[in-house]
Design a protein around this nucleic acid. Structure first.
Lengths: 344, 344
DNA sequence: TTGTACGCGTTATCAA
DNA sequence: TTGATAACGCGTACAA
């Protein structure tokens, strides 16, 4: 349509052919140099000089078309909250050591965006996909798997798929932290639940219920309120819990966002932690050391999760494909601070 | 080396040729279909069925080798703290609307990693790069620019490069919030500075100084302490400030991380905000509503920053390259809460 | 509108 | 080791 703009137009990058010509060697030799294979010393120097001179940069797309390797890892999460952002940072750093980069996508819970993300990952031919497992992806993940793209679930699981998994023991950590509340004499413990379509949401609830059962505390359905992982949800949930005839004396927030929401409500209504109500949360963040007398929380081993994911990734990408999936479950720490108190 | 594993091997994905053969049309027709160009109705149906049947996914690398367009945006930041994580989330969502995805890299302040990231972006032939400007990149950015890769700086600037810029008015926001402290009668106001190699670090300091000058308050060098943007740095800086003979009566933390560090120190030492000391911070986060009586803070317009970046990006990628760079500076809001009080 | 054939920048093969 | 050349999957002139 337009006549070719001689200046300004995206200038053709120099190619391996240009390098070969400038260095006066064959393209095959340059390719071998680029891939770290041994070549004659004199040629190496010629090539290095030519690359420098031309400002040559290998075209990864052209390479991947032959090798079927892009050195890109797809990373799919619902949102970049504290937890997922930290995961991305750690994951970026661990996969970087093997020369890979992370293509991230954030779906906000929208199934269409999830499908879109997986399509893009497929089109980009990412070497592997790391994702927060969620119910809406079953078919598409299965499809990707059949094309032999390694997939690793973390945070939330989805049974029945031949993927690798790196999870934390949500059940046990919740059980422990709620037991702690019960040990302090709390019998009316409210839970701000995440989405129960997520395995972590379900497991954190189960741990809560188990702890109560074990102490012989009746489980009151009115004390189980959905907060949908968000600040707003946590706020609403707290509103409902505190409107009960028999208010809870302690709150278990199943993630950081909902804890913020709960604390907002409490603050607005002049209630203090732990004097007026005890509060514990999943996910430990730096501010939890600061708020009131400190918030007792479950600390997920984020660095270890990222390292484990990367280990599995490298193993998968190294070996000729091995269909035995790995499943790792890591323990969380309970960080005791001052947000709980004993009740009669 | 290994004999070819017939099963398990990364199965060849179906190609456009397979689709053409299955649909009994020519590859050109399929290609036109994929790119939304008009084709005969009967063929369209054949093709759609073939794609479905084969599970065909276009190979983006092969396409990009021809079009020089990858639909990938490179995103380079020092770390994924609250601010940058929110930026990534917003940026992901805005560029998604034009079918693009974000390849992110996190350099942790290491110049070698920065160089590595830019190399990878160049090799991947990203359509554009969005990055936090920093001094260590001058030459490499210039090189990228000469290859006509659009680059947009945000958060921190670096003069003398033909890049687009989306910044906030750090100077003015700092000036306003420090003036607020001065208006309340504070004369010894400590500043926890970020890295002065960053333009935002420098500008926030300048705004602080300007506010003091204007009120006729002498600038005491002892009240200006480096915190290097981190929690630890903020903690250390506060330690030094509070060890002064004449302690500050107010603290201006130049970012969220350092504010957390400062608040940690204050808490450990039994000082309350604002009764014992006033505190304001750059970067607004949800928890600032909660801490003590709320933290007065500068709120950056993150959504608008991301939208502006995307607008510029789309304009750049649309037009035949236009060398006039754009530079946008956005205003920040000052959110007044309860972390300051009047002094004699 | 459709089909053919070539080119894009790399890697991989094979003979030298 | 090296050079020559055939793939790789897709876009796109060009002729039909």
């Amino acid at each position: 349509m337009n006549e070719p703009e001689p200046s300004g137009e995206k200038r053709r990058s120099p190619t391996i052919i240009d390098v070969a010509r400038t260095a006066d060697v064959a393209v095959g030799t340059v390719s071998r140099y680029l891939n770290g294979q041994p070549i004659r010393r004199a040629n190496r120097e010629q090539i290095e000089q030519a690359i420098q001179e031309l400002g040559y940069k290998r075209n990864a797309a052209a390479a991947s078309i032959r090798t079927d390797l892009t050195h890109i890892i797809g990373f799919l999460v619902p949102r970049f909250d504290e937890f997922h952002a930290q995961m991305l940072e750690h994951l970026s750093n661990t996969v970087r050591r093997s020369g890979r980069a992370v293509l991230s996508y954030c779906h906000g819970g929208d199934p269409r965006v999830i499908a879109e993300a997986l399509d893009i990952f497929a089109a980009q031919r990412v070497d592997a996909i790391v994702m927060d497992g969620t119910a809406d992806v079953y078919d598409r993940v299965d499809e990707l798997l059949s094309q032999n793209i390694p997939i690793i679930f973390y945070n939330n699981d989805l049974r029945g798929l031949a993927v690798d998994r790196v999870m934390v023991d949500n059940y046990r950590a919740s059980y422990r932290i709620v037991s702690h509340l019960a040990d302090l004499g709390h019998e009316r413990i409210g839970i701000l639940m995440g989405d129960l379509a997520n395995s972590s949401g379900l497991e954190r609830l189960s741990g809560y219920e188990k702890a109560l059962q074990e102490k012989g505390i009746e489980i009151d359905p009115a004390l189980k309120v959905k907060g949908n992982w968000t600040i707003d949800g946590g706020y609403q949930a707290t509103t409902r819990l505190m409107a009960l005839e028999q208010r809870p004396t302690a709150l278990f927030c199943a993630n950081y966002g909902m804890a913020i929401g709960a604390m907002s409500w409490l603050k607005e209504n002049g209630l203090h932690v732990p004097d007026d109500i005890s509060l514990v949360s999943y996910d430990d963040v730096p501010v939890f050391r600061l708020y009131e007398s400190g918030i007792t929380a479950v600390a997920q081993p984020i660095a270890t999760i990222a390292e484990t994911i990367t280990d599995i990734l490298l193993e998968r990408l190294g070996e000729p494909s091995n269909r035995v999936t790995r499943s790792v479950t890591l323990e969380c720490d309970i960080i005791l601070r001052g947000s709980t108190r004993r009740v009669a």
